[in-house]
Design a binder for these strands. Sequence first.
RNA 1: GGUGACGUGGCCGAGUGGCUAGGCAGAGGCCUGCAAAGCCUCCUACGGCGGUUCGAAUCCGCCCGUCACCUCCA
Length: 510
Amino acid sequence: MASTPTFQLYNTLTRRVDPIEPAEQTADGTPHLRFYSCGPTVYAFAHIGNFRSFLTADLIVRTARALGWDTTYVTNVTDVGHLTDDDMTDPSGEDRMVKALRSKEGQRFANIWDLARYYTEALLRDWRALNLQEPDVRPRATEHIRPQILAVQQLIENGHAYETSQGIYFSVESFPDYGKLSGRGQDAEALVEGAAAQSRDVVTDPDKRDPRDFALWKKDDAHLMQWHSPWGWGFPGWHIECSVMANEYLGPSIDLHAGGEDLIFPHHECEIAQAESLSGEPFARYWAHTRFLQVEGEKMSKSKGNFYTVRDFIAPEPEGRDLDPLALRLTLLSGQYRKPFNFTFDTLRDNVRHVQRLQDVDALVDDAMAEDAPGDDFLGERLDALYDKALAALCDDLNTPAAIAAALEGAKMLGGVGSNLNGATARRAKDWLDQINALLGIIRHDETPASADDPEEEGLDVQALIDERDAARAAKDYERADALRDALQEMGYEVMDTPEGTQVRRQVRI
RNA sequence: GGUGACGUGGCCGAGUGGCUAGGCAGAGGCCUGCAAAGCCUCCUACGGCGGUUCGAAUCCGCCCGUCACCUCCA
């Protein structure tokens, strides 16, 4: 094993790639990473862009664990709908979850709580399907209303917030560091002009002291989700939930905070303002942000018809395309998180192949271990070097393309040796595959051993054709064998002849 | 308008002062009854123009182009 690489990430706060140095260590000197990653608002099925962001967090955790670090990984579920236009515009505007409830898809839900529950469950299913690490805690905003109210009260008490007839606002003026993360928000005039340039309606609460001030609590006794507070019925502002939940599970000063690039401003800027005004300590020392993906070269949007949810790909037909979720995972990892990423069907197709190849090699190694042919290990060193390369790549600001390249090189090496794998080499290869899988999660699921898509489990008619074809080949009736192959391909199967006879697998249609 | 990125072979995508990334597609080969899969070999590029340097895709300057964010968003 080569010397342990230094884990470094681009830090939005310092605008450079910084080595990650957790503030805490366990008794034996092991670094302990305390990490908070912003989760989605559950008003719809998660889309592939959401998951690109969650995958960044996933890789950070996997890399830290591969380095032997302790990790506490918290990622939230935002199940409170926040205003679509927040406080800059009409504060009586609808929120996203209310909107979803009133949409056509929303008709089947009894109420907004029902909708939130449904999409939360869908999120967790997709999460597991894409083989993301389970967080240590997955707090929900609605289950942390009281600490949010207490935080708002405290902010009023220490002079960082004030009340108007419509709500409670954070006073940006009271926090001189506002803007240190995003480089924005220093200049109230520019903010208003910027919004005007986007031809947004600039309608502020007339009692707001500064256009930059943002809502901590909205007074609204007609809202579909409301709680009682010292200021009457209403609901919390968007930014306060993450500050409060991060504090609750990780303490007032955490190591690393991550999310999508859109969250830099205003969400994370506002989180910093609230959290640091409460604790007087730096909220997070490192900030990592994932760049938005594009689809076929364009911004993903419903109006362009290129908007894809995770289930569009992995759900069984006809709702989805019945793809191996790991292929979607690999596709989303195939670009570095901080670079523009263009999601294309070509890339998806390539990655279906790559996952299949890794799984084929995995099966090959299993067979070789079972056979346990004599001989010394002759690949271990080269495989170890490839694993070190993959880990070093991830440590270098999550260079996933380089890490994946190392994985594929190893697969090629094993494929080249093929059936000449002896037992000793196969065991080393299995260790390597396990390590690569722990790092990238692209060969098999970590949690539930994949048993769902057993390739043997084909329909009766398919098995009959396979048997018939094997018989025809044994009898050297190649005309018949070729006709049967054509028939199987017609039915959507890839046909391969092996020493064990005809093998088939589902042809990927995307 | 403000801020920040990016432009690498037919395509995707690493690298970032001299040393083959990797993949897809394409060509040839091994294997195969023929295929498929797999493996081997080949395909050598860095937006433009200047500059620094023994040497630049890599550093500097200018220009061109693409994209993102700027209170809906992962």
